[in-house]
Each structure stands twice: as structure tokens, then as C-alpha cells.
Write a protein that binds this DNA or RNA. Structure first.
Lengths: 212, 212
DNA sequence: GCTGGTTCGTGCAGGGTGTGCAGAATTGTA
DNA sequence: TACAATTCTGCACACCCTGCACGAACCAGC
């Protein structure tokens, strides 16, 4: 990125940040979130609690790690003006792209997941974060409808429809994420997505079980 | 419920609980959630902070109010063994029934909603609660599939399908709730639900825009 | 290298939430 | 009324988090 090698300051900063996050996650995995204090974490990294707060802001943040990224403005732009045959597929493509952009430390990630999953308070927080992202994406989808010249519908209707797309995408993504982290995973994300879209259609549109 | 009129203790208890919740919500609506302390709330009800905690357990709980109820065992039982043509419709009926069983103080409810909506921390918490309910309902739906003798599918597949139903229901319910609280609401819940199911089908299954 | 300026880590004081405990106050009952 | 059971309350405490100010570490220019 930068022509010069990162300064000592910068390198120390990154190292400390990583150390604190890792210590937080590992301690929580071992003793349970509630039984880990900020003092313990900072002590493990040979620094002061005050510094911990300067870096992470809260105990929660240390465990949850960096916020899941929103699609970049370029990705959003492309999605909005795209004219694929299926909104859901295009939307999922965008989200998956933005999610797989930055590589993750798989081991730490999985440890995080375990801690989060076994701590109601943290599961709660993550659900909330997802919810926020959904709200933002919802606006993006409605924007795409508008860009496509859907003039027969009111803004409210388009927003409702966007909401449905989000709800569907949510199902697909949860399904996909679950599969992705299963032990013997050996397929591409896109295959998984196609599968789960099929699943949605089956749930909803199975012609052998018509509505009413 | 009980043959005798509630005792003085019981009546005072209920009165205090309501007073504390109302005070919490009203103070938060006026000054903002962060600027209201437990001390303020308890003082407004002429009691001690310690008592507040005995009643509510946390400041959050006071604002959020009673947890949204899960369907009763009987309702769940009925749903599981029902053989309606459409799982989604049956499921939504059950949820709506359980939700509309206990009448709510509409005014306080709306004030709550406003406070929650304008406080990220509280929105987060509510999303989380919804998420928990969804997880439990998901198991119920999978149970129904099993009871219906869906032997061609594995447990995992049924669970995935249940997940999709939840995702869809989520969309429908959000849509419905939004409409329900719009000013000039003059239709039945069931009409709304039918509308939004139509919407889902349109989003997903519009034959004029086939997949691929 | 030395030095001055800047950034960053740290201790301290303090406000807020939430909990265990034990005694005081209130209610139910004989 | 007097006794028993329940509930309220004050107190001490642990923990989370923040503002502030001082001192240490780092960087840049000489």
C-alpha cells in the first residue's frame, strides 16, 4: 500500500491490536465471556486497561472483532444499475463478493464464532449488527428498483419488495454460512447459493402444494 | 384467575412494576435513553434503585417491556399436526394468534417503539430477541415437516427448509407490523398477511422474469 | 546522535450498571 | 396484638467505561 515500510509506531499498534483481540477471544473461550475482565485481557498483553479501551472501545468489540464490511460504493453502484434476470442472485453475488474480499484468519474466526455462539449477549449483538446491514442493503435494493424504472409501483411498495428480497437473502446466506463451515466443505460458494435459492423456491412455490 | 381478590402485596407489586416501566419509558422518551439513570427512574416512583433492580433486573428490560410471547404448547401442537396446504400461512396464523392474545396498552407500546427505534442499543437488543424466537420457531417448523412424514429428506434438509420458512415469515411480519402501525390503518391482519404473501411470491416467482 | 514536537500510553478520579448481603419495614395470619 | 413471612432498602463491592493530564515513546530535522 504505502511505499515506505510501516513505521515502528504503526507496527506496534497493529501488533497490540491483534494481541488484545486474540487474548480476549482466547480467554473468553477458556473461562467464559462473563468471567473475563478487561484487566485480565490487558494484563495478558502487558498493558493497562486504559490502553485496552483506547484500542477496542469495549470488551464486546474485542470479541466480536472488526465489523462485517458493507459493499463498497462501486459494488453498490454496479448492483443498482445491473439488469440481471434475478434481483436475488445479483444481490447475493454482491454481498458474497464484499464478504470474501478481505481474507480472514480462519482459526481465530472460528474461535470467535464459538465464543459468540455460546454467549447470548454476544449473539444478540451480532444479530443486531446484521440487522443494521440489512436495513442499509434494503435501501440499496429499493434504489435498484427505482433505477430500473419501476414506475408502476409507489416508493412504499418498492421498499416492501426490497424488504422481501432481504428476507430471502437472509435465509440463503444463513444456509450458505452453515454449509460453508461444515467440516467436509468442498464446493464453491456459488453452487451453495444456487442450491439454497432452489430451496427457497421449493418452500414457496412447490406446485404440488398450491396456496389455498 | 384466583378466586380471591389479589392481596395487597400483589396489587402493590403490580402497581410498582407498571409505574417503573412507565416511568422508564417516559423519561427515556423525554431525555434520551443514555441520559436516564436508574436512580432517576426509581426516584420518580419513590423507591430505591435496589428495588428497581429487584423488579426489572436491568434498565434495558424496563424499556423493552415484557418479552414477546412464544406460541403456547397447545398452539405449537396444533400447528405441528396441522395439514394446511401452505406451511407459511399456517405458521403466520399461529404467530399472529400468539401475538394478539394479550391486549397491549397501545399508547405505552408506541412510546416504547419510538424509544427503542431511536436508541441503537435497544434496537439491537430487540433484534436479538426476535432472532432467538426465530430459532425456536425454526425447530417447531422442522418438527412439523417430520410429523408430516417427509421421509425423502434428511433432518438437515428439513431444518434448512424450516429456516427458509422463517426467513419468509420474517419478511411478511415486518411488512405487516409496519402497515399495522401506519396512521390510517383500517384492514384486518389477515388481509395484510395475504397481501404480503402475494408480495413474496411476486419477488421470487414472477414468471415474466425467469431465473437465468 | 541530539533535540524539539508530536503522538501515544498510562494512572487517576469518577459516574453508571448490576449483585450479594443483612437488617429494617411492611404485610399476612393466628 | 404479636408473631411469621415476605419485601424493601442501604451498604459494600466488582466491573465497565470515560475525561483528563502527565509522562514516555517515537519521529523528523539538524
Amino acid at each position: 500500500m504505502s511505499p515506505h515500510r510501516a513505521s515502528l509506531r504503526e507496527r506496534k499498534r497493529v501488533a497490540m491490536l491483534e494481541a488484545l483481540e486474540r487474548a480476549a477471544v482466547e480467554l473468553a473461550a477458556e473461562h467464559g465471556y462473563d468471567h473475563v475482565t478487561v484487566e485480565m485481557i490487558s494484563e495478558a498483553c502487558m498493558t493497562s486497561p486504559r490502553t485496552f479501551y483506547n484500542y477496542l472501545g469495549s470488551k464486546e468489540a474485542a470479541i466480536l472483532g472488526p465489523r462485517t464490511p458493507f459493499a463498497s460504493p462501486e459494488q453498490v453502484e454496479r448492483f443498482v444499475h445491473e439488469r440481471g434476470p434475478d434481483v436475488l442472485v445479483d444481490f447475493l453475488s454482491m454481498v458474497i463478493d464484499s464478504l470474501t474480499e478481505t481474507p480472514v484468519d480462519r482459526e481465530l474466526y472460528q474461535l470467535r464464532q464459538r465464543v459468540i455462539y455460546t454467549t447470548p449477549e454476544l449473539s444478540a449483538k451480532r444479530l443486531a449488527i446484521d440487522g443494521e446491514l440489512e436495513a442499509r442493503y434494503r435501501a440499496v435494493i429499493a434504489e435498484r428498483f427505482r433505477a430500473a424504472g419501476r414506475l408502476e409501483a409507489t416508493d412504499a411498495q418498492l421498499d416492501d419488495e426490497a424488504h422481501m428480497v432481504i428476507a430471502l437473502a437472509r435465509g440463503v446466506l444463513t444456509y450458505t454460512a452453515a454449509k460453508w463451515y461444515e467440516p467436509g466443505f468442498d464446493r464453491t460458494v456459488r453452487e451453495l447459493i444456487e442450491d439454497s435459492i432452489e430451496l427457497v423456491k421449493r418452500v414457496l412455490g412447490d406446485p404440488s402444494e398450491p396456496l389455498d
